[in-house]
Amino acid sequence: MNDMTKFDRFVGLNETKISAQGVNVFYGDTHAVKDVSVEIAERAVTAFIGPSGCGKSTFLRCLNRMNDTIDGARVEGQIHLDGEDIYDPKVDPVQLRAKVGMVFQKPNPFPKSIYDNVAYGPRIHGLARNKADLDEIVEKSLRRAAIWDEVKDRLDAPGTGLSGGQQQRLCIARAVATEPEVLLMDEPCSALDPIATAQVEELIDELKRNVSVVIVTHSMQQAARVSQKTAFFHLGTLVEYGDTGQIFTNPKDPRTEAYITGRIG
């Protein structure tokens, strides 16, 4: 818990990477996200916390337009990435997603070899000029995901054969292999045991040196450990957004205080 204070003073230096203004999301008739405005800082970890069904994952999925793939989902409002509107008709969601990577709640490696899992993104985006290039990207990505030493001797083994924590780190390696500028993580540790969770958290800390990380989590301890900024969602609205230290020690909104002290949720 004490780690967070170390980074707090740097937050102010970071520029805004993603800026959302008045975002509303509807699933059919359900109004899942209500008028959310938030500024996400570059090269920092932003945590979304809140009780189940509060819209934090839905909002996260707006940031790389994954909601487009859900029938009946509708997004209103403005989301700018580096000052560019990502919902502009000119924007290709496929290219956006190469820039804004995502890691899911449940590890979802493809039923391919470990190597092919990591190489998939670089291949479809043509990032490697030749085999040696690709090998280098795969190794680098696996190293960044802190899993290289565990799998370097069995890159041809199926990714589905790894343990849960290894699978999740493989998925992170797969996501960072396309060199995203933003990495969205939707409860990345909820299916992992405490040791694997600690490894992933350490990894997130490493990643923020060159990537803006947005993480949805159910665990307030996790938010406090890994993030510099925290947003608290409740019933589809953004209740409070601020520096992590301030949210957890001195929340302004009574609902935030109630949640972090365990009275709602």
Partner: peptide, 17 residues
């Protein structure tokens, strides 16, 4: 599983890919 589809789409794969 839908997770596999999401995983590929989130990497920037087109639907055909």
């Amino acid at each position: 599983p839908r997770a596999l589809r999401d995983g590929a789409l989130a990497l920037g794969a087109t639907r055909a890919e």
